[in-house]
Design a protein around this nucleic acid. Structure first.
Length: 351
DNA sequence: AATTTCCCCAACCGCGAAGTT
DNA sequence: TAACTTCGCGGTTGGGGAAAT
């Protein structure tokens, strides 16, 4: 309903805070608490609006704020939570003691998001960029009979930014697609979707549903490939014993903090592919990956997404990669290549 | 050394939710 | 129940420092 008058209309100060202002605000809050933000600046002798004071306190002056670079564990937690919550920065911040929503938001936009893009992972959906595209519908309309598919041109991506294995996978998928009947079992698929809608019981699942629909396009058109992807990822995690299911990350997360992940879309964690199952799956990516380089969780960047309004940047953007960024990125890239290669092998056998 | 471009992040803005009268 | 106030959130902006030219 009503809106608080803007600071401008009252001639209040805007812009960067001075040390004197910081001191006044800190002193006042330490003595009286913040109570009513609207009246606080007047009482504290500040020519600021309450909103500005609140922001300054919560994002900068609060004594429990942790400063400095985000740790691997914090990054992992952010990515994991973002995959579940989307751009709910305050909710994510609530799981990261000492970090503010603003700080996490900034860090996401300036570091993590770019890194995921470089790795070919959509920061909105947390899925490999390829399956975001609904390639089947794009290609079936215009390039259905083409033997050579220029994926990078279709995506508007510079070829060097596309993992060649992903390119191969896309081509393979499109080749198999060519032989399939577009309308095959479509109505059965719709019934499954309807059933799933009825199963959606909480908001987070509802947020995931839109993405699930995209995934189900893949499920519908390429169930064998999807199943192989699952199986391979499961095999990989078992073989390498990387997932330490009893361990928790350094954050305060507990198992109860993780929402059940519906298995109606294909899972990167090796869960069931059965569309009608509603098995509760605890996300194994909460466990750290023990690795000589770092303990960044690969699964966390491939986990179940939620809708997010964050727009994708142009893929043609080039980035400077810091040493630490590069370590994380190269580790994840190697794991991604491992998976894709296995899938390709199995797809080859299947075809 | 000067200028331009890029990048980060503190701060602002607008909106909806929640609370109060 | 409507009108109003306050709070908190997410998206965006722009100043300033760093890097590139």
């Amino acid at each position: 309903m009503g809106r608080a008058p803007c600071c401008d209309k009252n001639g209040l100060k805007k812009g960067p805070w001075t040390p004197e202002e910081d001191q006044k605000l800190t002193d006042y809050i330490q003595k009286h608490g913040y109570g009513n933000w609207r009246t606080l600046p007047k009482n504290a002798g500040l020519q600021r609006c309450g909103k500005s004071c609140r922001l300054r306190w919560t994002n900068y002056l609060r004594p429990d704020i942790k400063r400095g670079r985000f740790s691997f564990e914090e990054e992992e937690t952010i990515i994991q939570l973002h995959s579940i919550l989307g751009n709910k920065w305050s909710a994510i911040a609530g799981r990261l003691p000492g970090r503010t929503d603003n700080e996490i938001k900034n860090y996401w936009n300036t570091h993590i998001r770019k890194r995921l893009l470089r790795m070919g992972i959509d920061p909105v959906t947390h899925s490999p960029r390829l399956d975001l595209l609904d390639l089947s519908s794009i290609l079936s309309s215009s390039l259905y009979n083409s033997s050579q598919i220029n994926i990078s041109r279709l995506l508007g991506v510079h070829p060097t930014l596309v993992n060649p294995e992903l390119m191969r996978l896309a081509t393979s998928l499109m080749s198999s697609q060519r032989d399939q009947n577009q309308n095959q079992s479509y109505h059965a698929h719709q019934n499954v979707q309807h059933h799933q809608i009825n199963q959606i019981c909480n908001q987070q699942e509802a947020e995931q549903f839109q993405y699930q629909q995209q995934q189900q396009i893949m499920d519908h058109h390429h169930p064998q490939v999807v199943e192989q992807f699952q199986t391979n990822f499961s095999n990989f995690t078992n073989q390498n014993d990387h997932w330490q299911s009893n361990e928790m990350p350094s954050s305060n997360l507990t198992q109860e903090d993780y929402v059940p992940i519906p298995t109606s879309h294909y899972s990167y964690y090796g869960g069931s592919c059965n569309n009608s199952d509603q098995t509760v799956v605890i996300d194994p990516s909460i466990s750290s990956v023990t690795n000589s380089n770092n303990n960044f969780s690969f699964a966390s960047v491939l986990s179940t997404p939620s809708s997010s309004p964050t727009p994708l940047n142009s893929n043609s953007t080039t980035y400077n990669i810091s040493t630490e960024d590069h370590e994380i990125e190269s580790y994840c890239s190697e794991m991604l290549k491992f998976e894709i290669q296995d899938i390709l092998d199995d797809v080859g056998e299947f075809m």
